[in-house]
Design a protein around this nucleic acid. Sequence first.
DNA 1: AATAAGATGCAACTTTGTTGCAAAATATTT
DNA 2: AAATATTTTGCAACAAAGTTGCATCTTATT
Lengths: 139, 139
Amino acid sequence: MEEAILNILKRNQLSVTGSRQRILELFLGQQGALAHGDIEKRTGEKFDRVTVYRTLQVFLNKGIIHTIPTTDNSIRYALCKDDCEEGHHHDNHVHFVCEQCENTVCLDEVTIPEISLPKGYEARQVEVIVSGICPACKR
Amino acid sequence: MEEAILNILKRNQLSVTGSRQRILELFLGQQGALAHGDIEKRTGEKFDRVTVYRTLQVFLNKGIIHTIPTTDNSIRYALCKDDCEEGHHHDNHVHFVCEQCENTVCLDEVTIPEISLPKGYEARQVEVIVSGICPACKR
DNA sequence: AATAAGATGCAACTTTGTTGCAAAATATTT
DNA sequence: AAATATTTTGCAACAAAGTTGCATCTTATT
């Protein structure tokens, strides 16, 4: 785990600092997505608000994390799989948002079906967000 | 057009006021989606910021418009088709965001394919956002 | 160990969204 | 058509979210 964090930072030529380690730790410590607010809350005592913003920005640029579209105007971030590169992500997996516990998870095993667009439209990326009830909240 | 606006308001038992007419006019005047910022800019001289927020909120509740998920932390709204009711929308269509002109349109004719989730997940709603190049920007 | 490069915290600020309340506009009743 | 009740609006004040410049400290490099 500790190992994994250093790996990610090294691989992306980032200097290893406290906030970067801590935030990566959060992502690795759970397999869902994190809202900006969550991250800020869970690091707020140790790091400045501004640092959190800047760290997430760096991770986004490097393709370490990606954003998940939401309707409620709260950005959510999730770790990218290893095959994302700077600039270009291929996170062609489905995101699931639980209406009950509000958790967001990446369903890596579910592939996005082909979607045929009207003439003239050229698809570059497809995002699928399924909302409903997750197994944990089911009963 | 003028007619259509009054229809929508009457059908939803809303009193017809300046801001409601103007905002509906914006939606009817173009077939894409509008970001909150757009709406505010194009009505700002006539109506208060707060009124715009409240009007959009009312339209959402009544099912006149719906939100479109975005990654950039800016809510976008689009008109619902007639078959949306208060509370429940069936906007099971695909949204297309052009990377060039930043326009968002609802592709009503494209239906969302069936997505099979892992055991235990129960889908209630599926959102599909395709980004790429739109016909107008194509060449 | 010394230096260069980069990250952080602070303060100040902008933008975005919210709430309470009085005034104004719309709808309803007579 | 006037009077009343109901809604909606604008204002002010505030809360929350996000940004920027700069001095200081930390990490990496030599």
